[in-house]
Design a protein around this nucleic acid. Sequence first.
DNA 1: TTGTAAGCGTTATCAT
DNA 2: ATGATAACGCTTACAA
Lengths: 329, 329
Amino acid sequence: MPSIRDVARLAGVSHQTVSRVLNDHPSIRVETKQRVLDAIRQLDYRPNAAARALVTSKLNLIGILSASVGEFGPTASIAAIEEAARSEGYSATTLNLPDTSPEAIGAAVRQLLREQVDGIVVIAPQVRVFHVLRGMAIDVPFVSLQTSSGQGSDSVAADQLEGARLATQHLIELGHADILHLSGPQDWIEADSRMRGYLQALRDADLPTIPPIRGDWTADFGHYAGRELARRQDFTAIFAANDLMAIGLMHGFRDAGIDVPGDVSVVGFDDIPVAAHVWPPLTTVHIDFAELGRRAIARLLATLRGADDDVPQREAPALVVRDSAATRR
Amino acid sequence: MPSIRDVARLAGVSHQTVSRVLNDHPSIRVETKQRVLDAIRQLDYRPNAAARALVTSKLNLIGILSASVGEFGPTASIAAIEEAARSEGYSATTLNLPDTSPEAIGAAVRQLLREQVDGIVVIAPQVRVFHVLRGMAIDVPFVSLQTSSGQGSDSVAADQLEGARLATQHLIELGHADILHLSGPQDWIEADSRMRGYLQALRDADLPTIPPIRGDWTADFGHYAGRELARRQDFTAIFAANDLMAIGLMHGFRDAGIDVPGDVSVVGFDDIPVAAHVWPPLTTVHIDFAELGRRAIARLLATLRGADDDVPQREAPALVVRDSAATRR
DNA sequence: TTGTAAGCGTTATCAT
DNA sequence: ATGATAACGCTTACAA
């Protein structure tokens, strides 16, 4: 593995000059520069990142802390974050949280810090994670993603509350008055935002609220809930906090002989790729998770570079109307 | 940021002794060790990875090269790979290929090499990627995932051919004789394996083959194909190369008034989380992608450590029978 | 069991 | 515009 000195020798200059070429220092003769560049190519020289990191004390690495393996949104965001980071000259390392216990979070952050990350993007939709994080006094900048409630300049979010409001309003406009909400898990910020959007829409329309059902995001739970709910008669529409649960829900209703949207209207959230193809095609809320990821990096790098950042904090959701919700007869 | 010397000073030993403690060298007095450990805790000292990497010329970093953003299987594997790598003391960096052109692949590998990875896991199901990779003479070990055809000790794979054979055989056992295959894209190794499994099952049963339809893995394509296929009468069952296409297919058939499984039986592949909840519940092939990821790391680390590896190369798929395929009347 | 010295490949600083 | 020299924080010899 050739070093900077090998290049210097071949080009007939000092290693320092090579370093200047590498970091394109302004004052260097073009001719010299060319000689160095040739030598670099000839030796297939690649700068040693570790040595560079040692002296600059910057690894140009950003850490991604994710507490939601496999969820649709986060996964889409992570890929975008990695790509955006690389295009800015950083590399990225992802760490998936095994659970959201304070210990696990602490260990994960320490691990990332040990790996010398310059900044951290947190994709941890659980409220609890944030409490722990705030109490940790992390010595690198970090931004959080997906937290509609995590105010402050350190977060980037889709306006999930607005999306939920849109979804619920849509049901109201279809003539529904008794709308149930199948929410996400207690601890999740997104679950909370989506529920708040739902409640707000009902309040705005002076409609009564029914105590929401707590789900766990899975289609299996939705399926179970659908079968249970089939016995109740106190609602004509359901807003599920995500598509997976909505699809499971429709399955449960089908098992119970309840027609969607004939008997009950269903709306989901996320617009996962199959949403358009299930039966009936699912009306849902679309969010651009990749854009969210890109924005998180923009925000983090702005902080890292000490620049003023005017990265938009909120991303607008869009209602996608399909067939799973219909006018109340 | 405290260094090893600060710790040494506080503990009243030489920095070398601290280094010994850090790498738990055998010969060191427990008492001394304790003093050092206390100092470390007290200063919140964290070893500088860059300095260590510089001298050992190992970053303990493994690179993940992925050419399949968002596909269900790969995504599940990636998370498992990261986790497995970390539990072995390595960190991981993921790089998503924007496209599979030789240039993009070359650039990605160079990038990873520049980031000083010790090894690379390739999740690139396209045949082409492998040709390029083989021609590159990469100077770190690499293993590939998901390639049922990429023989040699450098790959870990689910036996997709076997899974496809199972799926097709299931249709045959149900009494179908005219079975169509909706395959994945031309270039994909997995698409090829799944098609070969399909063909083998037909051959074993002395059944005629129908030219397969080339899909692109998306539910949208499945939907389109379903509508087109509705006009044909030359088949009674379809084996789709993945669940997304299978679900789209059923959507298309539904649009055309064709009943699944009444008129046509459908089988998918992957067992994605909604597979059980769509209508009709999808009969499919389950593969443990996470296990595959873990195995890839085991394999890579074995190579890295020069150990003999007896990591199983093949992972058995399982047929999951639901309702989308039924006996031919 | 512990300490001392050298060096890993860069960049920063000061000369020239 | 270029070069010499000193760090950066650690590990690997070698010595005691």
